[in-house]
């Protein structure tokens, strides 16, 4: 954190920061608060190397046993596989659906445009527990209707408690984020570029594929990574919807109660924390790369 201000602020932003950076109350507050935000996470990572089973100071000694234990735990592996499958599937679906919606809403005027935008962003203001309850209730209602109308279709039912409903809820949760990220990028891509491509003989979809898509790719990738990490970490709907299956967060939660398994859970948590921080940094780098590249163009 010592590098926060840096000795020489750039001239480019001189208007925003008229004077040389100096430690003042706001800077101290920011530094202290940021450290406080990281402190619990750092402690968790620290305790993951603690040789003692109790999560308390002083540290008794250092070990990697908990990591080995976590790595070998079949329950953890299964939960990780489930989480990866759900996160991959749901973030791919959300990225495709959200990007389509962003292009439609931003580039076209059509009846229902506002409605689509409103409904797509509505999940932002619905608590996740309500979303989960709605999916449970909705799937059950549709299933009972199906059972009455077409009894032969038992196998085609959407099981209310399953990884499928978890994934579906994650798509609904991620859609607004994807739309916002992709739309923010599309605003910066002039329509003229597409139109020029079409004047030169491209079809609409050809122009999308050859012009818009490459320019929007960093944003689309950032949206995908955002959706992926939000699904991978999501607990609120997964806990209600997963039933007997487990995602990584619900598995970790189920293990928290046992003092015996706790060190292993902490080790797994430490890995997830560090991986998430790296993923966030990568996403941001991608997004910014895309921005600067098109500014230069």
């Amino acid at each position: 954190m010592a590098a926060i201000g840096g000795p020489t602020p750039s001239r480019a932003l001189a208007a925003a920061a008229p004077r040389r950076w100096r430690p003042d109350a706001a800077a101290l507050y920011f530094t202290a608060f940021t450290l406080l935000l990281y402190l619990p996470l750092a402690l968790l990572v620290l305790f993951s190397f603690n040789a003692s089973r109790t999560m308390a100071f002083p540290i008794k000694g250092w070990t990697l046993d908990w990591y080995a234990q976590a790595w070998q735990s079949p329950g953890l592996r299964q939960a990780l596989a489930n989480s990866l499958a759900v996160a991959l599937g749901s973030s791919l679906a959300a990225t495709v659906l959200g990007s389509l919606a962003a292009v439609a809403v931003l580039r076209f005027r059509f009846p229902g445009r506002r409605l689509l935008l409103t409904v797509a962003t509505l999940p932002l203001v619905v608590p996740s527990i309500v979303l989960a309850v709605a999916l449970l209730a909705g799937a059950t209602q549709v299933n009972s209707l199906l059972a009455a109308a077409a009894p032969g279709l038992e196998s085609a039912r959407l099981k209310p408690f399953s990884l499928w409903t978890v994934g579906i809820s994650h798509v609904v949760i991620a859609l607004p984020m994807v739309i916002l990220i992709v739309a923010a990028r599309l605003v910066g891509i002039p329509r003229r570029l597409e139109e020029a491509a079409m004047d030169l003989g491209c079809s609409y979809w050809g122009a999308q594929r050859r012009v818009t898509l490459p320019l929007a790719r960093p944003a689309i990738l950032a949206a995908f990574l955002t959706a992926f990490s939000s699904s991978f970490d999501e607990f609120g709907t997964a806990f209600l919807l997963a039933g007997t299956r487990q995602t990584l967060p619900t598995y970790l939660y189920s293990q928290l109660r046992s003092a015996y398994k706790l060190p292993m859970v902490v080790a797994a948590a430490a890995v997830i924390i560090v991986a998430s921080l790296l993923l966030v940094a990568a996403t941001e780098l991608l997004r910014r790369n895309g921005e600067t590249r098109s500014e230069g163009a």
């Binding site: 996470l41 991978f232 607990f235 948590a269 997830i272 924390i273 998430s276 921080l277 993923l279 966030v280």
Partner: peptide, 9 residues
Amino acid sequence: APGWVSYLL
């Protein structure tokens, strides 16, 4: 960045 770390954790 901490905001994107698993909320449960």
